[in-house]
Measured scan of single mutants.
Amino acid sequence: MGSVRTNRYSIVSSEEDGMKLATMAVANGFGNGKSKVHTRQQCRSRFVKKDGHCNVQFINVGEKGQRYLADIFTTCVDIRWRWMLVIFCLAFVLSWLFFGCVFWLIALLHGDLDTDYKDDDDKSKVSKACVSEVNSFTAAFLFSIETQTTIGYGFRCVTDECPIAVFMVVFQSIVGCIIDAFIIGAVMAKMAKPKKRNETLVFSHNAVIAMRDGKLCLMWRVGNLRKSHLVEAHVRAQLLKSRITSEGEYIPLDQIDINVGFDSGIDRIFLVSPITIVHEIDEDSPLYDLSKQDIDNADFEIVVILEGMVEATAMTTQCRSSYLANEILWGHRYEPVLFEEKHYYKVDYSRFHKTYEVPNTPLCSARDLAEKKYILSNANSFCYENEVALTSKEEEEDSENGVPESTSTDSPPGIDLHNQASVPLEPRPLRRESEIGSRR
């Protein structure tokens, strides 16, 4: 089982795998120059863009038009607004034209077009017409509009002379109601789609790998820009990579689940303020055997998904993003964004995407760390350097704002901070800030 798991979770494809794949392509008759073999020097295209759209195009789909027309309502909801407006206008105009032609044909076959009612006051002739005051196609078209929109100006009306005319008036009224219901329903469904809710759900630009509770963890940050909550919010993550099976089958995008606390339930989050999602790199993680150097040379993509129900409509929305291997910062942490004021908490989104480097973060893999092949620094050293990194950030910001350097908390000259780390230190809580992250 261990060997199978290692093969499945191998992220960085070796040169031997690339040569094996190329040999397979030639042997199977696919070596026509169009096949692409992804190596370390040639990274694959992003499968999920940063804005959440999937970078996929469908080609050679059989009976595409028929399949889309069979699900016309979903098609109308998914198309762009400009095409929705075109369909909206065409549906009414074509129905008016169709029934206008029908009423014109009825008048033509009944002989109503030969009668001039402007110079004739004989009401008996008017009563013999199928539709009064309809003696041309324009008049028939206007009567069709008046019937379907129930305008009723009063000059044109159907008589009991022709039952077919009466039937067409009733039929057009029913068709008009159906068109109204369909168009209004599609427009309302399109307006109520929770897709735009994703514009106020954000992911951090970069993911980070750092120590948390004595273990290497992959972390990324999510935030909600609205005050309205995302009900039943939960997160998922998958690692996408290519691999070759033991039988020699090439899988271009193998999807591997990344555990973010599904078993323990901590994948469900209360997204009021930005939260750091934590994936513990343990023996079940696809990143277990990867060191910093392996991450730098790897070719994979981590897709992160945030799902929840919109509070206003109770409709489920899904926000997506992805991180390539070069977008994962090893040995970094996110800057705090949640600050405790006197009577409330304040979230500073200008710090949302910012990170700071944490010294002495192990550069080895989580496996080597678990097997004690890498000796961690003293816990006080880690905490102290973590505090120094934050303090230096604040000093830089104070210097930019014009604060005198004498007010900063610099260490005395001639003292090495790293050498001082081995000395037991008193706890130094942050002056006014605390970061709330997901705790395992």
Rank of each mutant, 00 (worst) to 15 (best):
R5Y: 06
S228Y: 14
M309D: 06
G62L: 13
A192G: 07
G62D: 10
G248Y: 03
H38I: 07
M219R: 00
V231K: 10
I183A: 13
T276M: 09
E311M: 06
Y250W: 11
D282R: 14
I258P: 01
I106C: 05
I164D: 07
V358A: 13
V170Q: 00
S406M: 13
F73K: 15
L306D: 00
K372G: 15
V102F: 11
I174D: 00
T361L: 02
D112F: 00
E15A: 09
G29T: 10
E307K: 03
T355N: 01
C319A: 10
V134P: 01
K393H: 14
G100W: 00
L201G: 12
K393L: 10
I151S: 07
F58S: 13
S411L: 09
I174F: 06
C162V: 01
Q293F: 08
I179S: 12
E400L: 09
N28L: 04
D263I: 07
H205E: 15
Q66R: 15
I302G: 01
D284P: 06
I305A: 08
I251Q: 12
Y334M: 04
S422D: 11
D263Y: 03
S136L: 00
I375P: 11
D160G: 04
K241V: 07
L425W: 05
I59F: 14
E395K: 03
R44G: 14
R431M: 13
K34L: 13
V48T: 08
P362D: 00
N55S: 13
S136F: 01
L218V: 09
Y9G: 15
L417R: 07
K50L: 02
V86L: 15
I251T: 14
H353F: 06
T115F: 06
L108C: 07
S228R: 13
P194T: 06
S246Q: 11
V231L: 13
I164S: 09
V175K: 01
L225Y: 10
C319F: 14
E396W: 05
N419W: 06
L271G: 04
G223D: 11
H418F: 11
E340T: 10
L425R: 12
D348H: 00
S422N: 13
I72K: 15
L239S: 02
E387M: 01
K118W: 02
C177F: 15
K241G: 09
G265Q: 11
A91M: 12
L425A: 12
V131A: 01
E371D: 04
V231D: 08
E247Y: 06
M84E: 05
I436Y: 09
R268Q: 11
I269H: 11
V187I: 07
V403E: 14
E327C: 00
L306T: 05
I106N: 03
T200K: 14
I415W: 07
D71I: 06
D121K: 03
K342C: 05
N198P: 12
R268F: 06
S136Y: 00
D78Q: 15
F88S: 06
L90M: 10
N401S: 09
I275F: 11
L271W: 12
D120N: 01
V48P: 00
P286M: 01
S45C: 06
A27Y: 04
L216G: 00
K20R: 13
V158Q: 01
A139R: 00
F30W: 07
S14G: 08
R156C: 04
A91R: 04
G152P: 07
V169I: 08
M24Q: 14
P286K: 00
G2N: 05
D119K: 00
V272I: 13
Q238H: 09
Q57Y: 06
P427G: 03
A91W: 15
R5Q: 04
F30I: 13
S350Y: 06
L329S: 04
T361V: 11
T147W: 03
D299P: 09
K49P: 02
L85Q: 02
K346A: 06
D119W: 09
C130Q: 03
V4H: 09
Y323D: 02
S365K: 01
V93H: 01
R46W: 01
I256H: 05
P412M: 11
C157W: 04
V222N: 00
K128A: 15
D296Q: 09
V310P: 11
T409V: 08
K241P: 03
F92V: 14
E327Y: 01
P274F: 05
C130I: 03
L201T: 10
V347D: 00
I183T: 13
K195I: 11
S365I: 00
L94N: 01
S406F: 06
D122G: 00
T317M: 13
D348M: 01
I269G: 11
V4G: 08
V347W: 06
R333Y: 14
N135W: 05
F58L: 13
H53L: 07
L90V: 04
T23Y: 05
D263T: 06
E340P: 07
S95Q: 09
R320A: 10
T138L: 03
V347L: 11
F137Y: 14
D282A: 10
C177L: 13
G100V: 00
S381T: 13
E400T: 14
E327M: 01
R320N: 06
D213Y: 04
V86C: 14
S434L: 11
N60Q: 12
M309V: 11
S291A: 10
A189Y: 13
Q318D: 06
G331Q: 02
S422E: 14
S132C: 02
L425G: 12
G185D: 04
Y288M: 01
L90C: 08
G214N: 13
E397C: 08
A165L: 01
T355F: 01
D289H: 07
I145P: 01
N206E: 14
F143D: 01
L109M: 11
G62I: 13
K34I: 10
R268G: 05
F270S: 08
D289R: 04
I277R: 01
E311F: 05
S228H: 10
V77P: 14
A421S: 06
W83R: 08
A298P: 01
